[in-house]
Design a protein around this nucleic acid. Structure first.
Lengths: 200, 200
DNA sequence: ACCTGAACACCGTTCAAGT
DNA sequence: ACCTGAACACCGTTCAAGT
């Protein structure tokens, strides 16, 4: 055989990550091992190390594949409240696409480095909400932890059932309501014109 | 020897959990194994199984020990805003007492079952905040995920430095500000003196 | 270039045996 | 009652060897 005794074609990163995600979705992160992954790919366990440095890099790559699928809402001129909610929904649908992976990375944040594009969109919306520049970074971080916390609880099944989504759906709306209301009352928001920085 | 060839006295659950917490604090949850714990206790690895069913039960017990140390603020008649903030701070100090354990349980929520007393205090405060009964459960769950998310990010070092706590401290105040403001504006609050819109 | 087998240093856990 | 040693079925990873 030219390439392998067991497979007709060489391994690719794409199929490695795709199979990783399939296994994690099926059996959770604890149910994934290099050896099981290799078996699923019909390959010797050690072959994986020719494509991926180690298990941590494998997980990190799988996270990057998922993160790249985030569909950031464009700036359509809608009120910042609507744009913030749209961003929240986009993020939530990403988390729900791979629940086990998501609840895992929440405890291993070094696995994924957030893309600048997400922060840029987030900043733009918070500016439109009238958040003063000096509070922008802290406010963004806090809101990020809020929705991460909700999604961690949701994807791990802690507080809301994963099956009947109606409960979690309405809870997420309440979460967004609270965030929007909090931002509105703390900083007199201005929908259309550019934000005016005001002290607190 | 009456009890053991290596130790003068039998193992106790107290020292097992205390040593578990010490190891987890020092090396993280991944740095803990039944074998290392046994070595630290100067005991055969298999002796542990006489006191604890398995590793999951060990972790669950350690979590219960920590959770039992939560000092719930009493109802002192203060405005609900202050009581809510006090509850948040009590919870945060618990999380920060064992950061590695805390960020671990966030992804393994089945390890710890929340005590009714926490929910009872939480409910009382939200009632004082004027949350209608039909929204109470959802609102409580959402707020719980918010602070859990913040503390998960803090204890895992994702967004805030663990060393200089000033950054995380002020971020937590912003988080509480946002929550209080969100509750105030959504439901006309009805407790004690009128709420003051600015936190700090 | 890509894959493999054997080997190493770890795991959690079971079980029969010791005192 | 409490502890132990040997053993089993797993891990991630290294390394020299194969094509």
């Amino acid at each position: 055989m030219a390439v392998s005794a067991r497979r007709g074609q060489p391994l690719t990163l794409e199929e490695i990550y795709a199979t990783t995600l399939r296994l994690v979705d099926a059996a959770g992160v604890d149910g994934l091992s290099m050896r099981k992954l290799a078996a699923e790919l019909d390959v010797n366990p050690m072959s994986l190390y020719h494509h991926v440095e180690n298990k941590e890099a494998l997980m990190s790559g799988a996270c990057a594949v998922v993160a790249s699928r985030l569909r950031l809402p464009a700036d359509d001129g809608a009120p910042w409240q609507d744009q913030l909610r749209a961003l929240g929904h986009a993020y939530r649908s990403l988390a729900r696409s791979h629940p086990s992976l998501w609840s895992y990375v929440n405890g291993h944040p070094n696995l994924v480095k957030q893309e600048n594009t997400l922060w840029a969109v987030f900043n733009r919306i918070l500016c439109a909400a009238g958040i003063p520049a000096e509070d922008l970074v802290h406010t963004r971080k806090v809101l990020y932890t809020f929705v991460s916390g909700f999604l961690s609880a949701e994807t791990s099944g802690l507080l809301f059932e994963l099956e009947g989504t109606a409960d979690a759906d309405s809870a997420f709306e309440i979460a967004l309501d609270l965030i929007v209301a909090g931002l509105e009352s703390r900083h007199s928001a201005v929908a259309g014109p550019p934000p005016e920085p005001l002290g607190r």
